[in-house]
């Protein structure tokens, strides 16, 4: 009897959850479906079975040199992530393993730089970039995204490093390990998972950043965010091509995102929710 009731409950919950999930996922799903339609098919009204043509994908690449933008996105998001890690790993390391009285204040101050609204420094950044020739350059944008995400990277690494037990360090020291040996043989293997998930989250954030990437680029360094935003002034009907470009722009990050759900919570709440 109890068993039957719980099965019925499961059925109800399953149906409700699937309906909500499908509604929320629908815009993405429909974009993917439309990307496999022809342009005339795409505007013929609602239809969830595409003809399966890939002409839109070919057209996007032929018309706009799509892969240049894609490559810019990869270079800028991966580049800024590696740069941020290079600076952040030592900092997080030192705060986690040699904390001082000021460590907490420094962490809070770093977080506070993240609160500065981007638009408040739009004018000076734009002028600095213009005068130094960094406008529309990959280097400029990479540095920009590094600075924006640095506080999150440091915080995330800090929360991971802090979980590495100090006793292990002491044991290694007792066994006569040098500082270098400590870092290379004891701490690094334990820190790799934390660094990897920090990297994943940061690539996602940098890939989707849509203020600086749009405002500081025109053509050469423009990543996918700027490329897609340029579709906002339409020239004729382009539903299928837009869908193909959008699908390509979100696919890699969607897949990475699915793998990093847990880290996402931790990284975006600065360790406040685990």
């Amino acid at each position: 009897m109890a068993r039957a009731v719980s099965t019925r409950r499961t059925v109800v919950f399953t149906i409700a959850a699937w309906i909500i999930a499908l509604i929320l996922f629908f815009p993405i799903l429909y974009t993917i479906i439309t990307s496999f339609k022809s342009e005339t098919e795409a505007i013929q009204g609602f239809g969830i079975v595409p003809s399966g043509t890939v002409e839109s994908y070919a057209a996007v690449q032929a018309q706009s040199n799509y892969f240049k933008f894609f490559l810019n996105s990869v270079i800028i998001s991966v580049g800024s992530t590696l740069l941020a890690l290079l600076v952040a790993v030592p900092a997080a390391w030192s705060m986690a393993f040699s904390p001082t009285r000021r460590t907490k204040d420094i962490l809070m101050w770093m977080l506070s730089t993240k609160m500065m609204p981007a638009v408040a420094v739009l004018v000076p950044i734009y002028l600095i970039f213009r005068d130094t020739g960094l406008l529309d350059s990959r280097v400029g944008l990479t540095v920009m995204l590094t600075l924006i995400n640095l506080p999150i990277v440091i915080w995330m690494l800090y929360t991971y490093f802090r979980e590495i037990p100090g006793e292990i360090l002491e044991a290694a020291r007792m066994d006569g390990a040098s500082l270098w040996g400590e870092i290379v043989y004891v701490l690094t293997p334990m820190a790799v998972p934390g660094i990897a998930s920090t990297m994943l989250l940061n690539i996602i954030l940098a890939w989707n950043e849509a203020f600086w990437t749009i405002r500081l680029t025109t053509t050469n360094a423009a990543p996918l965010t700027a490329f897609i935003a340029s579709f906002s002034s339409p020239q004729g009907l382009f539903w299928a091509k837009l869908s193909a470009a959008s699908t390509l722009a979100i696919a890699p990050i969607l897949i990475m995102g699915w793998f990093s759900q847990k880290q996402l919570v931790r990284g975006l709440t600065f360790g406040a929710v685990k």
Partner: peptide
Amino acid sequence: MIISPFFVMPPVAALVWKNMI
């Protein structure tokens, strides 16, 4: 399916809603 919209870059989200929905 439910977490997916979070990974969609803002310009894509806006254009998809504007044109397709």
